[in-house]
Design a binder for these strands. Structure first.
Lengths: 342, 342
DNA sequence: TTGAAAGCGCTACCAC
DNA sequence: GTGGTAGCGCTTTCAA
């Protein structure tokens, strides 16, 4: 059994309160006593006990705010499931979650929603937002005012965010290309469907994809690229037009949402057997298309893990007395084909 | 904030001790009072608080025994890493782990090692052993004497084990075949290397593999099958002979250990570019061979997760007062290629 | 500047 | 059968 504050107090000949003050760098302790106590704690190899901390922490419960642009975007369902699992496991430890959801990627809308969380009394934030100047400035202000922030799914550069919890977009794209290279032998006539050319994650996937195709010396020709704008109907229309105009297309790489729309176009034209289809992420409709053999494979990023870990890490950070900033957590790049998608 | 034992005691007009007795079905409470208290607890929606339980549980620390046939078998390194991570996270909650390792699959050796754990005072077991009559009888005896057992990596049929934590071997084999089917277009002349024809897991992988090849109507001919007996040197010798005798072999499916040995034979014969090589699991040497492009892909089973979850589930089981038996936990079937193996 | 004590929720134990 | 109480390790507050 390990060292307790009580033991340190006895050895140091002071009270538990004083030891506590020293260990938390709180003022009001004579320097020489502080030094003395700290030395004893170190010598004894003191490690605070989580169970005790947690129980005591219940007097000041922790409210964590979560923000996602998840309305109308099924991808985030699993992130939310991860949030909820963490909330369940930590509710006994005094943790509450507040979830704010919005639709789309308007900076003003995001800022207002996040502000709402703070006004609701959240002492910490897990957010998935866009990495723009305006939002960075806003978040840095919150961080300076003492509200720690973890970036989920999309990193926030040049901010004081504690850490990034999400996937490696470059690796995801690269993995799609690596697997395609194992499958394809003939020349590829490629259609790339992205979400938005403004989204760094989508661009990174395409960069990783192209780079690895080149490295592997896969002979390919890029026939066309279009943005699906997270809209299945629009993706369908665009794909239909492009496929009609280009009967030579034999591979479609869908780097973001709009998967079902693109696939609808392909099956309507009855070309699913002549075209490799690769996608990212794993929402219900995508899963179904993989199971039906329309999509050859999809590259996932463990979104549930992202939600779960970000909340857990925030809790740990608070439990450590905001001393130990967590490291980035990069989720696995997972390959799903028909046989292992469920 | 949720309902506590104290509140129930006040409402019921009894002491906390009595409430505790009722909630734990301990004897020494008048039936009508018990009924009364239970009703109030239900009405109030009482949920025991983990933090409080854990802290109190430190007075009777939990010692969990782990058994693995891991000596000389690198696969188990990650399972052990999972055990250790769980031990780390739970050490503050009074959990200690004792690890017993043996080499090979002799029932007597396994039984003696597991007995040692019990004699060392372990109150619960997480074991990876073989599913034989002798071992089943031995374990059932322990289970009857009040020591709960979780089966890790290999299930134990017809025993009172709490649950199974491990992979789906059939799905793993099936996934290997599904991915191979996406890659291969010509007729396959197949060499299958298994670990032992006595191991159910290995056989299941091969069954899943063959079944899916047939389902996908992949034209293939089984040229040869041999056992590698978890021995790289032996695997090397056998592979060398078989490959020399059969220049038509263009695909090797390695269902168990011996991966590096087989690959050495292939590269020595300079046939790595003519042969698809598929393997299972992810030890350091396998990882290297995937990175070098010798192995096309390997199918993993998240061994670390297996170690981690089994210990966590055992802890939760004890925390629930041995009331709620945990469900099976089937780990993901993960596909690793060069681009996502690290 | 420091000590003492209460209390987080639960369990265990002793006394009646 | 039942109540009362101490204590798990920690934080916080009040008193000195």
């Amino acid at each position: 059994m390990s060292v307790t504050i009580k033991q340190i107090a006895v050895v140091a000949g002071v009270s538990r309160g004083t030891v506590d003050r020293v260990l938390h760098n709180r003022p009001g302790v004579k320097p020489e006593i502080a030094l003395h106590v700290r030395k004893i704690a170190d010598d004894l190899g003191y490690e605070p006990n989580r169970a005790g901390k947690i129980l005591a922490a219940r007097k000041q419960p922790l409210k964590i705010g979560c923000f996602l642009p998840s309305i109308g975007n099924a991808f985030f369902d699993d992130v939310i499931a991860g949030f909820q699992q963490a909330e369940n496991e930590l509710s006994d430890f005094g943790v509450t979650l507040v979830l704010q959801e919005v639709e789309g990627y308007d900076a003003g809308v995001h800022i207002r929603a996040i502000r709402k969380l703070v006004e609701a009394g959240c002492q910490a934030l897990c957010v998935s937002t866009i990495d723009t100047k305006e939002i960075r400035a806003f978040l840095n202000q919150l961080i300076d005012s003492g509200i720690p922030v973890i970036a989920v799914n999309t990193d926030l550069t040049k901010t004081g965010r504690l850490c990034y919890v999400g996937c490696d977009y470059l690796q995801a794209g690269s993995t799609a290309a690596g697997l395609l290279a194992l499958m394809a032998s003939d020349q590829l006539n490629l259609l790339i469907v992205t979400g938005s050319l403004k989204m760094k994650g989508h661009n990174d996937r395409i960069r990783g994809f192209s780079r690895t195709l080149r490295e592997k010396k896969v002979p390919y020709k890029l026939v066309d690229v279009f943005e699906a704008l997270d809209n299945d109907e629009y993706a369908y229309q665009m794909a239909l037009g492009t496929l009609r105009a280009h009967p030579e297309i034999n591979c479609i790489y869908i780097a973001a949402a709009g998967v079902a729309g693109v696939c609808r176009a392909v099956t309507e034209l009855e070309r699913q057997n002549q075209i490799y289809i690769l996608s990212h992420d794993e929402i219900e409709s995508t899963r179904q298309l993989v199971q039906d053999g329309v999509i050859d494979f999809t590259i996932g990023q463990e979104p549930k893990d992202q939600g779960y870990c970000s909340v857990q890490m925030m809790f740990d950070y608070y439990m450590s007395g905001k001393q130990v900033a967590p490291c980035n957590h990069i989720t696995n790049t997972v390959i799903k084909i028909r046989e292992n998608i469920n």
